[in-house]
Nucleic acid binder design. Structure first.
Lengths: 301, 301
DNA sequence: GGAGCGCTGTATCTTATGTTACGTATTTTG
DNA sequence: CAAAATACGTAACATAAGATACAGCGCTCC
């Protein structure tokens, strides 16, 4: 039998001029990035890997040689070329030229770049916009001094640090605990059932700090626990939403984050960022002591 | 462990050969542009034209071929090469690599380019600014279609959903699992030791989806686990950083979030927001089926 | 479970890119 | 003004880059 037609994409749609703009359906594809993410669904595994690596740090990988590109994506060179061909380019240099042109346009008008979010992703992701707003709002109501105070309180290591959260916020407590446990000793995340934490109360005293995450609907069990801890003189740092969990009345420090987003769920993203900021601030404060500790931990690996 | 990720990107040494080592005194040369404008005075006419052409639309001309560069500058190819050699580079490719590295650093932190816009009032927390940039940047590389695809994949409930994360990202997996478990059945977060997950592999098959969170340093145990799951035909959705965890090679869908912030730690905030967005999208998709399910759950309280 | 198709990598080939040698032009200097 | 030194371009070269052919393999669909 004679060789039948090669895989269909090779030189299928390239009759026209090189400068043609790519159209997909009714929507004009402006950037190559869009073109890729539009077609990534209909790509075979190898080419998809190429696409993902390119998008991950766009457009730099595309400016390198085919060999480097293929190595970065973990595929072979021909796969890269097939990938480029599928996007509609005649050859690799043409693809690179397109990327360079695009880059030139970007670099020339930095203004468009900042406008882009509202242009491309604006209407597309009201979720993102709301989240960004939440963060700005949250930090607007949160002075640097306040953050520094809390960081100092947590960093002064007179006692132990306990962290706990509610149904959806407990992962935030875990996240924070995972970091704090590295830069200082005696950090404990309270997991499991209510009865288990309750028993830990006997370990807590005036010198200790309890970090609680609680947004609505505020959990009864957490409130009870906070109250008991407060009675024992434990300092409470509360992460909550703008409507303030009842725990606020027991708390030494209260961080109120915005949580409203156009979704069925509340967003904990703002609180997450506050937590990260706090972790960063504490790490800086404990740098001297922490550096040794981190070295020690490293050597244990 | 602690990765100091921000500024110090460009660590390439320009020209160690330096036959005529024009020592630049005490001032460190940060960018190639500076290097050029520093030495442009002591250049012959032809090379000066090359320098001016490059600076005129920096750095794009330098990324093209020698022939194109020479044509743009109106000089011959050897002049370009001599120009590059005078800057201290061994050869043209090395020069191009340096330009690309520089460009990568620029593109990575858009904050440095648009120096402190009056958005929040300038001296606000650089941590917050970096985080907001990370999110915008992350979503810029993430098309709505891609998100919708992933949401659809997770929402089509032909099989089970498993979630797992690394040392610092496992809380993200938990957070997502906590929400998904409400809107659909058969959602499992894989906790505890490696041996425990491994045993769960026998429950996983082609119809199932595994959501993995993995940012650097990428954990060996996770990679092994992902590989085994992949061999069993499990569809993998990967949340990673822009450098892409090795798991990307097994993944059906890859979400690359920006993680660089001016802190000792990497930030998972951008990935957190993507996760929330995904949760929201899935909730919307499963509204019909989910509504009943949520009512049922309510009545169980 | 088998047949067909399509995707992917290895090896080979071809192109064009960067590099170098050398002669001419231009500038500099005594 | 003359001679030397330096700069520049033309043309040939070597190398590395992109492109292609082919075969193995896995996957899907009967």
């Amino acid at each position: 039998m004679i060789s039948y037609s090669l895989p269909g994409f090779v030189k299928r749609e390239f009759g026209k001029t090189a400068e043609q703009s790519h159209e997909v359906g009714k929507t004009m594809i402006a950037s190559i990035a869009e073109l890729i993410s539009d077609r990534i669904g209909s790509m075979p595994a190898g080419e998809r890997r190429a696409a993902q690596t390119l998008i991950a740090n766009y457009p730099l990988t595309g400016l390198k040689t085919v060999a480097e590109f293929s190595a970065a994506a973990g595929v072979s060179s021909p796969t890269i070329l097939r990938f480029v061909a599928r996007l509609g380019f005649q050859n690799y240099p043409e693809f690179q030229s397109a990327l360079q042109d695009e880059l030139a346009a970007q670099l020339q008008s930095p203004a468009t770049r900042t406008l882009n979010p509202s242009a491309t992703g604006g209407a597309a992701s009201p979720m993102l916009e709301a989240t960004l707003d939440n963060m700005r709002e949250t930090f607007r109501h949160l002075s640097d001094k306040q953050l520094a105070d809390i960081a100092a309180r947590l960093a002064e290591r007179r006692g132990k640090t306990f962290l706990i959260g509610g149904r959806f916020t407990d992962p935030l407590a875990r996240y924070m605990a995972a970091h704090l446990a590295i830069i200082q000793p005696d950090v404990h995340h309270l997991a499991g059932q209510e009865s288990i934490w309750r028993d830990r109360l006997i370990d807590m005293g005036k010198r200790d700090v309890l970090v609680i995450f609680d947004i609505r609907r505020y959990q009864e069990s957490l409130i009870r626990f906070a109250e008991k801890a407060h009675e024992r003189g434990v300092q409470i740092v509360l992460f909550t939403d703008q409507w303030l969990s009842p725990i606020a009345r027991f708390a030494r420090h209260v961080i109120a984050g915005r949580t409203a987003v156009p979704s069925a769920w509340d967003s904990s993203a703002a609180l997450f960022v506050v937590a990260e900021t706090l972790i960063g601030a504490m790490t800086r404060q404990l740098e001297a002591a922490g550096a040794k500790r981190i070295r020690d931990l490293e050597s244990l690996r």
